[in-house]
Design a protein around this nucleic acid. Structure first.
Ligand SMILES: NC(=O)c1ccc[n+]([C@@H]2O[C@H](COP(=O)([O-])OP(=O)(O)OC[C@H]3O[C@@H](n4cnc5c(N)ncnc54)[C@H](O)[C@@H]3O)[C@@H](O)[C@H]2O)c1
Ligand SMILES: NC(=O)c1ccc[n+]([C@@H]2O[C@H](COP(=O)([O-])OP(=O)(O)OC[C@H]3O[C@@H](n4cnc5c(N)ncnc54)[C@H](O)[C@@H]3O)[C@@H](O)[C@H]2O)c1
Lengths: 220, 220
DNA sequence: AGCCGCTTGTGAACGCAGGAACAAAGTCGC
DNA sequence: GCGACTTTGTTCCTGCGTTCACAAGCGGCT
């Protein structure tokens, strides 16, 4: 039993660790060397106790009475998240959204870089975005194999998203981020993470509507 | 006690309701009139029992032995979510991402439309995107008041996101969708929903990495 | 008209996440 | 060198979300 640390980290904790990592990087750039859980929690918008519980999943790294060493904690989280080396990603569907993603410089500093851009439209193929040239879909499989891309991003229309997903899986991609408003099915062992902006807006709208209703509740 | 239905719907349920709504719209367009919970659940990628529990939050709407009437259920969900009439939104930061959002036709069919586009850069102001002209930041407050915009979307760089948030709140916006990688603070009564794509990628990367590790676990 | 099969809706159990409180531990001041 | 204060790490507990399982209800068939 060399590993007393439980292998399983809750997914909600993982998402927060990524936020802590971003905040810590900002603090380090600002010259801070140590930070307390309360300070870090308020900067990340979470509860201090919850933050300490999250950090406890990766072993004691703080000093009682002082706080956490910013650089050491950042290193620790980066190692757990596997953010030490940059991961190669491929992007399919270079339309409005896909172009913005391909052009986004922020992914590089967070451990991700695109190694391939693909589109079915001849009008898009050949354009250069963020230093990469858009390739036709025929080259998807060979490019994924050659670059050993680990993450695929889908930004195509919804009606072809499943086909694109299948081709990515077939090519060996095991992690997929899907922006198309469609529910994708993939075999076991493949993670598909949907990002549906309309759903986010609808949740916001519902919360706002519910906030307005309770006042009229007493009138019933 | 005229309202036997509990006023509180779990947020996780609300997000799934939005997905059901999308799936139901697709089914209705395909000509389907009824659908069973199992079918709808598999199309939405959730557990059938969970789907029924979600729907139970808005009262019985199904017919035992038959299933749900597609149109009626869609109407019911749309009413609960407040998606019957389109909600006016303002978008701040018309860069790469903001342009894609402003140009996106899909929001209209999901109950949202932009009534104002704003940017601080003179190079952006005056451009027309999706039928709207980009306005300077000075006009934000008056435009929000005039259009009674209920939702604000932030697509500016992270270092000015908090200022933009403050101005939106000051102008009367009570729901904010934030794409900038920054933790925003807002007064009580204002909902801020972050969408951090880097975090999504990092969660994917972690899950993929964890999937690969267990095989080597026995070697320790 | 009565029975059968199918599907919904709900009740209970389980597991998990979140929050508060407390003990351990280390540092700073004297 | 010692005491007190600060902050972490953990433990307990409460509440929520999810899943399973079953009884109730309705349509269709005979
Ligand atoms: N633009 C947004 O702000 C936004 C917001 C929310 C969701 N989305 C979703 O993201 C996806 C992309 O949106 P968009 O606005 O960029 O659309 P878009 O039409 O501008 O771009 C789609 C791109 O996919 C390409 N494409 C079409 N079929 C393809 C195929 N079979 N294989 C590969 N590429 C193919 C097209 O050539 C086009 O370049 C859509 O599913 C949309 O619903 C977009
Ligand atoms: N582009 C992407 O794919 C992507 C992905 C993830 C996150 N983001 C985030 O979304 C935000 C926007 O990204 P982008 O790629 O569109 O950046 P961008 O630089 O292309 O656009 C930013 C826009 O905001 C405007 N702006 C700057 N300061 C402003 C202010 N004070 N008030 C109003 N407008 C102001 C700029 O003029 C510019 O047009 C950034 O925070 C980025 O980190 C973008």
């Amino acid at each position: 039993m060399i590993q007393p640390r439980p292998r399983t980290i809750p997914e909600a904790t993982v998402a927060r660790l990524a936020v802590y990592l971003r905040v810590l990087t900002g603090l380090a750039d600002g010259g801070r060397t140590t930070v307390s859980s309360g300070e870090l929690a308020s900067a990340a918008g979470v509860n201090p106790a919850g933050l300490r519980k999250d950090l406890s999943h990766l072993g004691s790294c703080g000093v009682r009475g002082v706080g956490y060493d910013v650089r050491a904690l950042r290193e620790r989280i980066a190692r757990v998240l596997g953010a030490e080396r940059s991961r190669p990603c491929v992007l399919v569907g270079i339309g409005n959204l896909g172009t913005a993603l391909a052009d986004y410089a922020g992914f590089g500093s967070r451990g991700f870089h695109f190694v391939g851009l693909f589109d079915a439209s001849p009008a898009r193929v050949g354009h250069t975005i963020g230093g990469l040239t858009v390739q036709p879909m025929e080259e998807l499989e060979t490019a994924v194999t050659a670059t050993d891309a680990s993450i695929g991003v889908i930004a195509t229309p919804a009606d072809v998203a499943q086909q694109v997903c299948d081709r990515l899986v077939e090519a060996g991609v095991r992690s997929i981020l899907n922006f198309a408003p469609a529910t994708l099915t993939a075999p076991a062992g493949v993670d598909v993470r949907p990002v549906d902006l309309s759903v986010e807006l609808q949740v916001l709208a519902f919360l706002g509507q519910q906030r307005a209703v309770p006042a009229a509740e007493v009138t019933a």
